[in-house]
């Protein structure tokens, strides 16, 4: 159950989503990925995409216009 951090600050679509996909590929089941982003599209497209892939996902706004997205690799 390892934990990985992904810095996606100041990056726009599709960079955060592609970075997350690439990182998830390297992780094993049960590992958690924490994405740090300030791109408000990410809380829509990253969340949608990872849900479609069947992973567990949640996010919170940690300060104005900044989010942490938590993804647990499920398969």
């Amino acid at each position: 159950m390892a934990e990985y951090k992904l810095d996606c600050l100041f990056e726009a679509c599709p960079i955060p989503l592609l970075k997350a996909l690439k990182q998830l590929e390297k992780m094993s089941i049960g590992d958690v990925l924490i994405m740090h982003t300030d791109h408000n599209c990410s809380i829509k497209n990253v969340v949608e995409w990872t849900k479609k892939q069947g992973h567990y996902i949640d996010y919170i706004e940690i300060s104005e216009g900044e989010w942490e997205i938590y993804i647990e690799k499920a398969r």
Binding site: F10, E11, G65
Partner: peptide, 10 residues
């Protein structure tokens, strides 16, 4: 939405 933020060049 109070999401305004100055963004830097990374």
């Amino acid at each position: 939405a109070s999401e305004f933020k100055w963004k830097k060049i990374k």
